[in-house]
Design a protein around this nucleic acid. Structure first.
Lengths: 151, 151
DNA sequence: CTTTATGCAAACGATTTGCAATCCT
DNA sequence: AGGATTGCAAATCGTTTGCATAAAG
């Protein structure tokens, strides 16, 4: 029983439910973005989301940005920086409320999820510095097996 | 004996030496940037470096970018992303060849260095995924004591 | 009907690049 | 001299914003 990245594509009804629960308006764009994110196997950039939004749900990039902003505020998605000059976003499923991070291949760009993190040592050190409401971003890059062969 | 952030301002001679050792040309801009970085107590953005370069060493922003690119290639500086939409750079002193990371206040922007990291668990997990030549970026943000009071 | 969202285009900030002039070795 | 470096301006790229129109509740 593989426990890998168990992302569940959202149905229309589920997407609607997510929006209701967060008090967000149900628009084609938001529905489309949520579903697109739910179907992705790794975090997507705004540009990618925009490109993936087909037909009815297609909208302007600015709308994607605005929607993403709202999703972030509501805690529906998680933002991560994988050493690129833009951010990537992924849905936060109800079962994985825990932080997690990624490895990204610096050659081909594949992105793999990593297991939950334990950074208690750091967090303790930071509390000692007097900081609160901590957040962290931990991202790895490397060269994946496939790209290692091509060298 | 405090062992905190012991950054040593580089003298002209030392800066020149750094450039020689890396096979980089000794120009006013590069000298200035190196010295500016050596005098900073936390990582600087390109814009900040540019602003700090006074008088003789002042140059175009594009030159700062080009120099930074070379410094990165030579491993003279370390790049980090602290949740901002640009990168920050700091000199890698000969005594601190080890990785380290930062906490940044999301309100006022203060940046504090953190002690060296032990991420062996993650690194092991990543090796199991078949990745090599790993690099990682771990950055924290929080609200510092000072800003916590202002709320 | 009143609020919120959207498209479009313009504005922005960070970074890159082409090219002719200039500095370095 | 001859290649590397710079300034300057234009070009990109990601992201944001103003505004008039359209959709949501």
């Amino acid at each position: 029983m593989t426990k890998h990245s168990c992302h569940h594509s959202l149905s229309e009804a589920q997407a609607r439910e997510v929006l209701n629960r967060s008090g967000l308006s149900r628009t084609k764009a938001k529905m489309g973005i949520l579903i697109t994110l739910s179907e992705a196997s790794s975090p997507l950039s705004v540009a990618e989301i925009h490109k993936l939004l087909g037909g009815d749900a297609s909208c302007d990039v600015s709308t994607v940005f605005r929607s993403i902003t709202q999703f972030k505020e509501k805690g529906i998605i998680r933002e991560s920086n994988l050493g690129e000059d833009f951010f990537r976003y992924e849905l936060i499923g109800q079962e994985d409320h825990h932080h997690h991070h990624h490895v990204r291949c610096r050659d081909c760009g594949v992105i793999k999820p990593l297991p939950e993190c334990d950074l208690s040592a750091f967090e303790k050190a930071i509390l000692n510095l007097g900081f609160e409401k901590m957040e962290h971003h931990l991202e790895f890059t490397g060269i994946c097996v496939k790209c290692l062969k091509d060298r």
